[in-house]
Amino acid sequence: MWRQVTSPRVLRAILPAASFVILLAAIFYVQPRAMSYFGMNLMLQYTVPIALATIAQMFIITVNDLDLSIGAFVGLTACIGATLLADSPLLGVLALLACVGAYAALGALIYWRNLPSIVVTLGMSFVWLGGAVLILPTPGGTAPGWVKAIMGLKTPVVPFPIIATLVIGISVHLVLMRSSYGTVLRGVGGNPRAVKRAGWSLLKAKMVMYAAAGFFGVLSGLSLIGLTSAADAHIADRYTLYAIAGVILGGGEFVGGRVSPIGAIIGALTLALTGSFLTFLRISPDWQIGAQGGILILVLALRALIKRQEG
């Protein structure tokens, strides 16, 4: 029994959750006020868009690619949401669908020409930012009422952000980890040749994963303006790095299709909460970024330790 619990595999799965729980406990200790419906709601609200962006990044990482444009893309969808979607819903929905389509097309291009995803997405990040500035030259716009209503939902007992992140994590887990096509999709990252020989289309798989990333990017942008009530082209610049770090912190690997949706969500929450924790501790903002990185390195170092046992 004890051997089972301390087996590297189990430890590895527990690590993200354990670091999250430790962090949460530390926050409650430093700032007991956080331990309430109001406090949790406030502290976790902004983790919903980060969690969605992290899931988007996870889809890309699953097929061994990396998306350096997700932050700019979320910014673009936020700008569309606060302008087109609010003024003429039909046009807004079409524009957002076009964004998802563009992501699928990117996946196809990257597979078809065998391009490095980092370069393509880095280039696209400027395209998304340019589009966002064209749509919304100066910060402003208004989020549609229904988006604000959803994000401002007062659910009984359990705060909305917790329910939202749980629902996102579990539904993505069911599709990607439990369904048969989900296994194929992860196989594209693990052993593309084998998947191809088995008769699956790699092109289609990549397009599906990129489209899924685009879809979650749109959700992230909309949830973000639901909180801020207005948009700014640079509103989500930080999300690119947060999303990558969240996936890795949550137990994912850059290659091999080895990812965990629930882990990624927990990783995103951990990252966001380190910021709150450091604010409550009154650490000078100049040190906060460094401290955030320190926590990240600590968790990854622990993982490397477990991995050595595994091998």
């Binding site: 006020r33 406030l42 502290m43 609200q45 910060p139 973000l224 948009a231 509103i235 604010t279």
Partner: peptide, 28 residues
């Protein structure tokens, strides 16, 4: 913007009576 928004929420949580802001964005 997102960092300052989260920062303001943390300040709310800490129970400050007043928050003085030099803002990253007039609307967001």
């Amino acid at each position: 913007v997102t960092e300052q928004a989260a920062q303001i929420q943390n300040l709310i949580l800490e129970g400050y009576d007043a928050i003085v802001i030099n803002a990253a964005s007039p609307d967001a």
